[in-house]
Write a protein that binds this DNA or RNA. Structure first.
Length: 602
RNA sequence: GCCCUCAUAGCUCAGUGGUAGAGCGCACCCUUGGUAAGGGUGAGGUCAUGGGUUCAACCCCCAUUGAGGGCUCCA
């Protein structure tokens, strides 16, 4: 196999090879431009990544946006030079000579010499062949592949995006380098398309929409990662929770409520203080006892289980709780509603006998998909994570649990990937990601076996044989957390929510003050019909009221003038700008109620 | 946590080493207008917090708090 062929194998299966080479080559061109600017710079690595590429540098000063413009412009010059990318194989000693003043490269060479591991994480016996690629004045330790010459990079389809800090090899014990992110495409149209996608994602940013629609906020005095739900967001959350409760109630769940803190002994029994302490808030000491804010609900549910002797006739048991938990997330990782320190899980724990496991998992999975579909998600991707090297419990139980999970996925006809060895130490699991309107994946649901807690809390049921048996236990969260789910909903719908979720479903717009009283009457009627309605009694003109209703993305604007009052009607304008004209109040109520019940339409 | 950037009115943002401005929103007045912004007047800010430099700090420096972009998709 030629070096070129080996290089081609580096390209990930789903990565278009030409784009991979373009981005990889653009990274080298960028490194050349940076080295010309800072001859003493130390260069690290510069791979293509999804949609982009980057290169890490150790530089004498921090970069500015002006530097980026300059580097980008120099890159175009190098591209115009159409310098060929040439490679050659070198011995380790020769490589060390070439990169004598590049400590990161020397480290990589040493690693290559030692053999290290291949891309699958398996040790490689012989050291791979070391190659270097050169274009113009720049030579890099590199396995390729590259385009034939710099001229094959489209100068109108590259753009440097941002500067960020990044640890050498991603390890925070290592020095912090400066990373430049760039993107490169085949054509300027492709670049435009990519930039449009970024703009669209920014337009849907739940933090921005959350402010526009007055849904939630955070407050410096309250603390980072702690969410304040405003009345509009609160109304939406209540709607989601009510739906969630109804569905659970109709499907054999019991509702439980548990405290926010528990004694240290509880967390010792559960193992959280051994395995999870660094994600927990510091203890509160009272009466010489340590209490901890709960990072999970399960230990409490375990004790609800242990409060009785359970018979096999009682199983399956399903304890559901919207449980609010607190986890200490590192400050740099917090992000809007998507990564927070206090959140409410839509949690449940199932307990069942071994011969119920199959049905129970089928049930949980279908219940989950129904729940997600109700919120407008149709595109799912599942991940099955199996037994890791370190695990608790009996291997045969794991095998059975994994088989049950996989069968359930097949029966549900869900596309899934297997993450072999990716399970938690306590049990295998299914994670479900949904694709949103921009095809971005969000992980929401998880269904996990637990072979740890039943042991630790020594839970059991009495079987038909009169003996004590260990039940199977399953954790599951469907929406994940209310905070995160809300953030995903906002981005998925860009704030244009289905009617049933809208905080204000109809806005009554009197054209003049003369219609205010009538509007109030209609509003009372709509409220009685469980339609959330507001009357705009401001002295703004109708056009202005419509504009404001539109900006709040209110589904129905009900314009009321003299004619409507006379006919006991409202004139219905949809947020799509479609004008339905006048209809009777009763007809409107019927329409809205239908749309709300359908959870779709307008 | 670490690197970089940022913090000015309720919101979005200008701005200057000599104690601050716009638009929107809000209040009031005029206007009673038929499907995305009618007009006027006014209130509202110890320029995130705490130190420091300076005759003088919103502006420069340091710290803190909060927010944003990142922190292996391994040559």
């Amino acid at each position: 196999m030629s070096v070129q062929e080996i290089a081609e194998k580096v390209i990930p299966p789903n990565y278009p090879p030409d784009l991979y080479k373009i981005r990889h080559s653009a990274a080298h061109v960028m490194a050349q431009a940076v080295l010309e600017m800072f001859p003493d710079a130390h260069i690290a690595i510069g791979p293509p990544i999804e949609d982009r590429f980057y290169y890490d540098f150790d530089l004498p000063r921090t970069l500015t946006p002006d530097d980026l413009a300059q580097i980008e412009s120099r890159m175009r010059d190098i591209i115009k030079g159409d310098y060929p990318f040439t490679y050659r194989a070198v011995s380790a000693d020769e490589a060390k000579k070439i990169f004598a003043d590049q400590p990161f490269k020397l480290e990589l060479i040493a690693g290559l010499q030692a053999g290290q591991v291949n891309d699958n994480g398996n040790p490689v016996n012989e050291a791979p062949e070391i190659t270097v690629y050169t274009q113009d004045t720049f030579t890099d330790l590199c396995r390729g592949p590259h385009v034939a010459s710099t001229g094959q990079i489209n100068p109108d389809a590259i753009k440097l995006m941002s500067i960020a800090g990044a640890y050498w090899r991603g390890d925070e014990k290592n020095p912090m380098l400066q990373r430049i992110y760039g993107t490169a495409w085949r054509t300027s149209e492709e670049l435009e398309q990519y930039l449009w996608r970024l703009d669209e994602a920014a337009r849907r940013d739940h933090r921005v929409i959350g402010k526009q629609l007055d849904l939630f906020s955070t407050n410096e005095e309250v603390g980072a990662g702690l969410i304040l739900w405003h009345p509009n967001g609160g109304l939406m959350r209540k709607t989601v929770e009510r739906f969630w409760q109804d569905l659970h109630e109709a499907s054999g769940y019991d509702f439980v409520y548990t405290p926010h803190i528990g004694k240290s002994t509880l967390w010792e029994t559960s193992g959280h203080l051994d395995f999870y302490a660094e994600s927990m808030y510091a203890p509160i000491e009272l009466d010489e006892q340590d209490y901890y804010l709960k990072p999970m609900n399960c230990p409490f549910h375990m004790h609800i289980y242990t409060s009785h002797t359970r018979s096999y006739r009682d199983l399956p048991l399903r304890f559901a709780e919207m449980g609010t938990v607190y986890r200490f997330e590192r400050s740099g990782t917090l992000h809007g509603l998507l990564r927070v320190r206090g959140f409410t899980q839509d949690d449940a724990h199932h307990f069942c006998t071994p011969d119920q496991v199959e049905a129970e998992i089928d049930f949980a999975l279908n219940f989950c998909l129904n729940m997600l579909r109700a919120f407008g998600f149709e595109d799912f991707q599942a991940y099955l994570s199996t037994r890791p090297e370190k695990f608790v419990g009996e291997a045969p139980n794991w095998d059975r649990a994994e088989a049950v999970l996989e069968m359930a996925l097949k029966r549900a006809e869900l596309p899934y990937d297997v993450d072999a060895g990716g399970g938690a130490f306590y049990g295998p699991k299914i994670d479900i990601k949904v694709k949103d309107a921009l095809s971005r994946e969000w992980q929401l649901s998880t269904i996990q076996f637990d072979f740890n807690l039943p042991e630790r809390f020594d839970i059991s049921y009495v079987g038909a044989d009169g003996e004590r048996h260990r039940p199977y236990m399953v954790h599951r969260a469907l929406l994940g957390s209310m905070e995160r789910f809300f953030g995903v909903l906002i981005e998925h719908y860009a704030g244009v929510f289905p009617v049933w979720l809208c905080p204000v479903q109809a806005l009554l717009i009197p054209i003049t003050d003369d219609q205010v009283a009538y509007c109030q009457e209609v509003a009372a009627k709509l409220k009685a019909a469980h339609i959330r309605v507001q009357v705009d009694t401001s002295d703004n003109r109708m056009g202005h009221k419509i504009r404001q209703g539109q900006e709040q993305k209110i589904p129905y604007m009900l314009v009321v003038g003299k004619r409507e009052v006379e006919n006991d009607a409202v004139s219905v304008r949809l947020r799509t700008e479609e004008n339905l004209g006048a209809m009777s109040v009763d007809d409107f109520i019927a329409r809205a109620q239908q749309v709300i019940a359908d959870k779709t339409g307008l």
